[in-house]
């Protein structure tokens, strides 16, 4: 099993990771769109959420919103 890595097996293992990342990105984008005020321009946060893997959505959740309630 160790000396042969086929792509379908790789995909099956990686798929849940990708799905979770996708969910995080979507939640962050929805919250970003709905937020009245963000810390810094909104388009900057969209770029961060989309392109900074994993860290981007987390950074937005923690510091992005002015008054999280």
């Amino acid at each position: 099993m160790n000396d042969q890595f086929d792509t379908s097996q790789l995909l099956a293992i990686i798929a849940p990771v990708l799905v979770i990342q996708l969910i995080l990105v979507i939640i962050a984008l929805v919250l970003c769109a709905k937020a009245e005020q963000t810390r810094g321009p909104k388009w900057m946060w969209v770029l961060i959420i989309l392109f900074a893997n994993i860290i981007g959505p987390i950074a937005f959740f923690i510091m992005g919103r002015r008054n999280d309630g």
């Binding site: 990771v17 979770i20 969910i23 939640i27 959740f61």
Partner: peptide, 19 residues
């Protein structure tokens, strides 16, 4: 629930755990 913490914090932990 409203701040979505109940959703994203466990998801981050699952991601860390699976990685």
């Amino acid at each position: 629930v409203r701040s979505f913490k109940l959703l994203w914090v466990p998801l981050v932990f699952v991601l860390l755990g699976v990685m």
